[in-house]
């Protein structure tokens, strides 16, 4: 995936490219526009600039199709039915993925408001993964998770990376980007800069 002169509420122009199987981790202070940057790539917020996927211009395809291939998951994902199961078109596939994230498939029969924040986050991740997007845009996907569940999510994401998906991750967890082999980027004052030198210098280990 290639972003060319992306400019919008998050700042910019942003230019970067991401090979299949590669991951980017974006850090930055709250309100710097990390989420907005992901939303711009997913074409959910108005902005200038182009995004190409495998050389195909985003503008040449319908937005819903683009969003299936470039899956964005918000930090607080929304739900539009009472029952958890109603959010999945294919329940069998969802049930197959749930144990890998330490979720009991029975949770699907619960109303969404009965689920914990962490359970909701993992279910929302499954919801996004079931589209098999070529690029995953995840906004703090493990923010509400305990260390064990965090590792399970990372294992699942690493699988997807090995299968050729790309990943852009907003995270505050430096160790997480290292575990996923992600290049580190810092977004502040509308500028996105590579952080690998700072990360190496600042790494306590």
């Amino acid at each position: 995936m290639q972003a060319i002169n992306l400019t919008g509420a998050a700042g910019g122009p942003f230019n970067f490219s991401l090979a299949p199987g590669a991951a980017m981790a974006i850090t930055g202070p709250s309100g710097a526009g990390k989420s907005v940057l992901l939303r711009m790539i997913a074409d959910l917020d108005p902005h200038e600039g182009k995004v190409l996927l495998n050389g195909t211009d985003r503008a040449s395809q319908p937005a819903p199709l683009w969003r299936q291939r470039v899956g964005y998951l918000a930090a607080e994902p929304g739900w539009w039915h009472d029952q958890a199961s109603a959010h999945f078109t294919n329940r069998t596939l969802a049930e197959a993925l749930m144990p890998t994230l330490a979720l009991n498939p029975n949770l699907l029969d619960q109303p969404v408001h009965r689920l914990s924040t962490g359970e909701r986050m993992r279910l929302a991740l499954i919801r996004t993964l079931l589209n098999n997007p070529a690029v995953l845009l995840l906004d703090e996907p493990t923010g509400a998770l305990d260390p064990h569940a965090t590792l399970l999510v990372e294992t699942l994401l690493a699988d997807r990376l090995r299968q050729g998906s790309s990943l852009i991750l907003v995270t505050h967890d430096m160790a997480q980007s290292a575990r996923l082999g992600a290049t580190r980027w810092h977004l502040e004052a509308g500028m996105l800069s590579a952080q690998d030198d700072i990360a190496i210098n600042g790494d306590p280990q």
Binding site: L44, R67, G71, A74, G78, W79, W80
Partner: peptide
């Protein structure tokens, strides 16, 4: 309903 609508849009 913004979050609910955008969650669906994000899924295509």
């Amino acid at each position: 309903e913004r979050a609910a609508i955008e969650a669906q849009l994000a899924l295509g």
